[in-house]
Structure formats: C-alpha cells, structure tokens
Nucleic acid binder design. Structure first.
Lengths: 157, 157
DNA sequence: GGTGAAAGCGAGGACCA
DNA sequence: TGGTCCTCGCTTTCACC
C-alpha cells in the first residue's frame, strides 16, 4: 500500500490529473503498458489514497458566483475549544470553499464565493463575523484569475 | 448555449462536482430522468463551459509535497508591461498551483507547493523573488487543512 | 424535451507467464 | 510484476414521440 511511486505511476497520475475521463486504453497507450496492468495500477493508486477522487470542475462565473474572496481571520482567543468550534462551523458553510489554518499574522485563510459584492458584504457581516472566536476579518477580492488549475507538479512524470 | 440552468441541470452539476465517475445511468436515476436526455444535458453543460473539465484530485502529501504556502506579492511597479510579464512567468512555474490578482494591500496571492520547508525557502529566494516587478513577498504556511474540497455551492441543487 | 432500442466499446475479472 | 482473452454493462447515438 505504501510502495514508492515509480515513473509509470507518476505519469498515470499526471495524466489523470489533467483529464479524469481518459479511458484505461488511452492511459495504457500513453504510458506504454497494456490495459490490464494499467488498470490495476490506477486502482492501487485510488486505494492508497494518492488519488482521492474524481471531480468535475465548474465555472463559478457561469453558475452566478461572480465574487471570489480571500478572507484572513484573526482569532480573539486561541484555546483548543474555540478553534474546534470555528473549524466545525466552517465545514457547514457552503460559501466557504476552502479554509486553512495558517502561520503568520492571521490564524485562518478562507476562500469564499458569492454571487456579487452586495451578497458578499451581507454574508461577511452576518455569517463570517459571527463565527466562534473571530476577532477580525480582512477580505481581499480576486480581481483576475491568473492561474487556477491547481495542478500539482509531479517530478519525473 | 446560454439557456438558464434549471433545477435538473443544477442537480447534475452538483452530482458531477462530487463524483465525476458517476455513470449516466446513475446520474439519470438521481435526477429522475432517463439516460438519454440526461446525457444530452451533461453534454450541453460541457459544451457551454459550465463544466470545464474532469480531473483526478491527488494527495499532495503522498506525492511528497509536504508544504503548501500562501504567498502575498507586492509589486514595485504597476505598469501593464510588468504585470503581464509577471503573470506570464507565473504560468510556467509548476510549483505555483494557483495565482490571483487581488484587491487590498497586496497585488497577487499565490498558492505554492514544495517538498519541505528547506526546498520552499530556496524556491522563494531563487524563483519567486526574481519574478518581474516583485517588490516584496510574504509567505504564510498552511499548518492544517480545514476544508479543501473547493466545492462550489449550487443554489437549489 | 422525453422514450426505447441498437451497436460499439470500455471496465474489470480470470488466468497465464 | 506485465500480458491476453472474455464478458457484462454502460455509453452513445439513432429514430420517434
């Protein structure tokens, strides 16, 4: 389950990261293998959790989500209890599409989507500000997406 | 091509966002439709660009990428030329997995991955600092992922 | 926009080297 | 580990409501 990834594994991962709809036959051709062992490798990578899932990427704008904001959060207290409550609350807020506990002057960095600036403002005030332990928020808006593929580099693929 | 999304479309999008491997038959059952019209809807959503692609999600840690950093960039000059050069350069750096032009005290927000802190330090010094127009960098490290699904909320799905 | 049917093909397993 | 069938079920595309 924890065998190191060889060059073939890495090429499979790179290919599937770019296009999850490749058939096993296409994949096999791409890595110079026959379909069956290729399929077995992919399954092994899935079961080992190297591949955690397959997802359709959607266009936020075309879904009516015109605003993406990066929100830095400073906590007022740093007890474990409060942190846990904050983290749990964040899980249940659909508008928060990503959240990390980060080092530095802020405690958390959130990525939030909203239909427009007015909706975001209301959301920040009524939902984010009210989260457990929050002392201060700082919102930075995405003005222009430069690179959003989030494709992980795979050395030697 | 620009028909508004009805409830069925939104449910299809929500389902495929969670699992791109659902078969058309399963999708059809889930939205109470027969496979054929269901397949036609999915194809329409793909062609309209609402679905921009299908991708395997990989586990950065298991790929040996232990560090995720959020890097705020302040530019020294704000000419269009320099911005274009910076944006173009960022495209070609695999370690930069996301980049937005943002409002506020910083100009760009980057998300960067690296094997470990030492590798990140070297990368920040030799690659990021050297990008066109960069005046200052501020790195914040992801200590703990709270929510990383990046699932877009789809109202009424 | 929805249904039913038909053809082609890919997934996934059994088995061998 | 990799390779070769083989089979089932699905995808995809018709023609038609």
């Amino acid at each position: 389950m924890d065998a190191p990834l060889d060059r073939t594994d890495r090429r499979l991962l790179a290919a599937l990261q770019d296009d999850a709809r490749l058939t096993v036959a296409e994949l096999a051709e791409r890595v110079a293998l026959s379909p069956s062992p290729c399929w077995r490798r992919v399954r092994r990578l899935e079961q080992a959790g190297v591949i955690s899932g397959y997802h359709a990427r959607l266009d936020a704008g075309r879904l009516g989500l015109g605003i993406t904001a990066f929100v830095s959060v400073v906590m007022g207290s740093h007890t474990r209890e409060v942190a846990r409550a904050f983290e749990a609350a964040v899980q249940d807020i659909p508008e928060v599409i990503a959240c990390h506990n980060v080092s530095g002057e802020y405690d958390f960095l959130l990525e939030v989507v909203a239909p427009d600036l007015a909706a975001y403002g209301e959301f920040a005030r009524s939902v984010l500000q009210a989260l457990p332990g929050v002392r201060a928020l700082h919102s930075s808006f995405a003005l222009k997406p430069i690179k959003t593929a989030r494709r992980l580099p795979i050395p030697g693929a």
